[in-house]
Computed example of a mutant assay.
Amino acid sequence: MTQPFEMLLSGITLGVGGFSCFLVAHKMCKQAFYIPLFILILALTLLSAGGTIFVGFEQHKFGYISILAPSFLLLAPSLWLYSNALVASTPWRFKTSHIKHYIPALTSLLLSAAIALAPKSLLQDMFFSNLDVTPNYLSIFISVATMLVIGIWLLQTVGYLLSLAKLTHQYHLKLKHVFCDLTNKKLKWLRIIVAIMLINGTWALLAITDINFALFEAAWGQLLCLLTIWWLGYFGLNQQPGFAPVYNEATAQSSLDSTHFARYQRSALSEQQSQLIAKKIQQAIENDKLYLDSQLTLYKLAKHISEPSQYVSQTLSQVMQTSFFECINNARIEAAKEMLQTGQYSILDVAMSVGFNARSSFYKAFKNRTNMTPSQFQKNIGL
């Protein structure tokens, strides 16, 4: 790929990154969970400046090199903190304790300062020449610090991504104990971000080994960076935390929980107590038909039967051997089967009538419950 194309691609990436930072910064003033997203996009945007700097502004190339270490070390912790904000069960706040995740990036500023203060002739020999460099304290520090940064970055990235995988798995399990509709809450797009960033990291690591292969041309790195920034900007700006719809309900329910907590003497539920709660849940579903509420949550159910939400969830999982998600959707499917047997309603009408928000979620739940689609079910009964 030619240098003009590389510079054009870098310019587009800088434009997309800068505009994304502007939009995220505007939202960041009102919602704190955008702070790590802003840092993440800003770091990626700074990294993407290489094509523009090396092709059009070569006199600033050492300044660009000086920001590489902190920019790389900001990526993984920012993605992890942003993911934490999206899966938090209460409104997320940026706390002083979160700064510890940025200690490697802050420490790497020493390397940035050393590069910024080093003579250009020394930096030219170290980074762009095959000649041996006469060792001195500054060149040794820059060399050792650079290798340490690469090692820390690799360990940091692997550690945070493994933690992120565990975090999202626990989040998906928790969703099913609170919601009966998981639309726009699964954060599947984050998996793609993780995959792209892994490719980005692998590309960067192989590229610095000076492998002479077309795949490691700088333009490919720019393209990966552009894709990452666009994906983060588009989905990040439209994504709300998964538990945001129940923040107020959870706060209100916590008051009820504290009122009822003394009744259970701060101990685990007895069998008699759990059976009583199970009976209340069944009555709420079968008699009161709470499942018809498309926005039903665990907290609404707990409020309806006047029981603490944590004990309702515990009863569902330990006594009734199910989750809130499965319990409500199974009740909806049974009601849907009765309507389908009449042959008087369309499948979409049936889905909406029993509490589903979308045809697709109804189809998926119906097939999981019956091992057949609604259409196949009707054919089996001769309709």
Rank of each mutant, 00 (worst) to 15 (best):
L154A: 15
P77R: 10
L106H: 07
I103F: 11
L75K: 14
S97A: 05
Y160A: 09
A118T: 15
L131M: 04
I39R: 01
A145I: 11
N136Q: 10
Q124F: 04
E58S: 15
V55D: 13
I150T: 07
I65K: 14
S78W: 04
P70H: 02
W80Y: 15
N136R: 02
S121K: 13
L40R: 02
A116W: 10
T146E: 09
L131N: 11
F94D: 00
A165G: 09
N84P: 00
K95E: 10
I152C: 06
E58H: 10
L106M: 13
H101R: 06
K95L: 09
L154S: 13
K120V: 02
L47N: 06
L81Y: 09
F57W: 14
F127G: 10
L138C: 08
P36E: 04
F141H: 04
L110R: 01
P91L: 01
H60T: 09
S112W: 01
I103E: 00
L44R: 05
P91A: 02
L75R: 14
W153M: 13
P119H: 11
L75M: 15
Y137P: 00
F72C: 11
S97R: 08
A49N: 11
P77V: 12
I41H: 02
A105N: 03
Q59C: 08
S48G: 14
L111W: 00
I140Y: 09
L155H: 01
L162M: 15
A85L: 07
H60P: 00
L42G: 07
A85Q: 08
A105Q: 06
T90D: 01
G56R: 10
L74I: 10
N136G: 05
D125F: 04
A165V: 14
L74K: 12
I41W: 03
K120C: 00
I65E: 15
A43I: 04
G63R: 08
L46H: 08
A116T: 12
F141E: 05
S97P: 00
K100F: 07
L106N: 06
A114H: 03
L138S: 13
L155Q: 03
T45V: 11
A49P: 12
I53D: 13
L148P: 06
V149L: 01
K61I: 15
P135A: 08
A118W: 04
P36A: 07
Y160V: 08
L75H: 13
S139C: 08
G159F: 10
V158M: 12
Q124V: 04
T52I: 10
F62Q: 10
V55L: 06
A76I: 13
